[in-house]
Design a protein around this nucleic acid. Structure first.
Length: 311
DNA sequence: GCATGTCAAGTTGTG
DNA sequence: CACAACTTGACATGC
């Protein structure tokens, strides 16, 4: 029976669940022992918040949760960086993350990471690639700790043309440590890399494509939505495909399509997706309200269609 | 307590 | 050439 597992991105609007962050500027002013305890308290709180997030997703019938890249803030910073083990003498913080991951597994809440725009594996600058590999390593290790199976990454910049950029991307992917490499997925973006431009590399390297249908509408290619859906789904092999959906704040009538709306218009979800089992992250400012609203609208519209068909 | 200025990082496109 | 947008809040501090 096909069904969509709707996903929430990083935070809640209506639940008092908050992930803490930190700034380098501030932690640099702290004495080493104080800094260590400060960062440890944040890591501990974020592990607790992750457990709470999983529990709340379960209550709300939300089937996936994207973990903030700040789960261990500053962990890869050149000056303030640290390893979780540096903060965690008795292993209790790691144990708390493991417990959160086990709760997610038990509740069938799929966990993922989405490294942000500073992670550019195909940069022309070696120092950028190096820091990107480090960040992917850190997120890959956290993903292993909590049992997240996907690190969704944009392909990066298009300097020198798409072909040269894809070539650099492949070299960057080769540098990833195993925890990151085995979880890597690429996402089509709204400016440079369309699904069509990424699919050959994805298919050849066995890197799944996270198909973002809204980005595809912003940055179209010769594939239509259904063709891109099918080819992207195939890159996941036996795994459940992971897609993204959002609606433009300004509508499709004109203006910048890229800013996300508070909610997703159910009509922006491709009908073909009804026939598939998928994880779909809902990228919307109204967070869990938008996930719930979309799920209800989608099921309602499906039921309506079914009634229309059988009568 | 509340308002405010600030925050590690890259790339792209606009003015 | 400089700068904002992406996303985007949440941090510590100062009043």
């Amino acid at each position: 029976m096909p069904r969509i597992r709707w996903g929430l991105c990083c935070q809640f609007l209506d639940s008092p669940i908050r992930f803490r962050a930190a700034t380098h500027r501030y932690v640099a002013t702290l004495e080493p022992a104080v800094r260590r305890e400060y960062l440890a308290s944040i890591a501990r709180d974020n592990a607790t918040a992750l457990s709470a997030a999983v529990a709340r997703c379960t209550e709300l019938g939300i089937g996936a949760f994207r973990i903030t890249s700040q789960i261990l803030p500053l962990t890869t910073h050149p000056e303030s960086g640290y390893r979780l083990s540096d903060l965690d003498d008795d292993g209790s913080i790691a144990a708390a993350f493991t417990a959160a991951g086990e709760a997610a597994h038990a509740a069938d809440v799929r966990l993922s990471f989405h490294p942000d725009q500073f992670v550019v594996l195909n940069s022309e600058q070696e120092r950028v690639v190096e820091s990107s590999v480090n960040e992917m390593d850190a997120q890959g290790r956290m993903a292993a700790l909590v049992g997240a199976d996907v690190l969704t990454l944009h392909a990066g910049g298009a300097a020198g043309g798409i072909d040269a950029a894809l070539e650099r991307l492949e070299r960057g992917i080769e540098r990833l440590p195993a925890a990151a490499r085995t979880r890597l997925a690429l996402e089509n973006d709204d400016r440079s890399f369309s699904p069509e431009s990424l699919l050959p590399l994805c298919e050849r390297l066995g890197v799944p494509l996270v198909y973002d249908v809204h980005h595809h509408r912003c940055n179209p290619d010769t594939l239509d939505v259904d063709e891109a859906t099918r080819r992207a789904a195939a890159t996941w092999g036996r795994r459940e495909p992971y897609f993204h959906v959002s609606s433009p704040r300004a509508g499709f009538g004109g203006g910048d399509l890229r800013p996300h709306a508070d909610y997703v218009n159910p009509e922006d979800v491709p009908e073909l997706w009804r026939t598939m089992s998928l994880t779909v992250d809902v990228e919307a400012k109204a967070k869990e309200r938008a996930v719930i609203a979309l799920r209800e609208a989608w099921l309602g519209a499906g039921a309506l269609r079914y009634r229309v068909r059988v009568t």
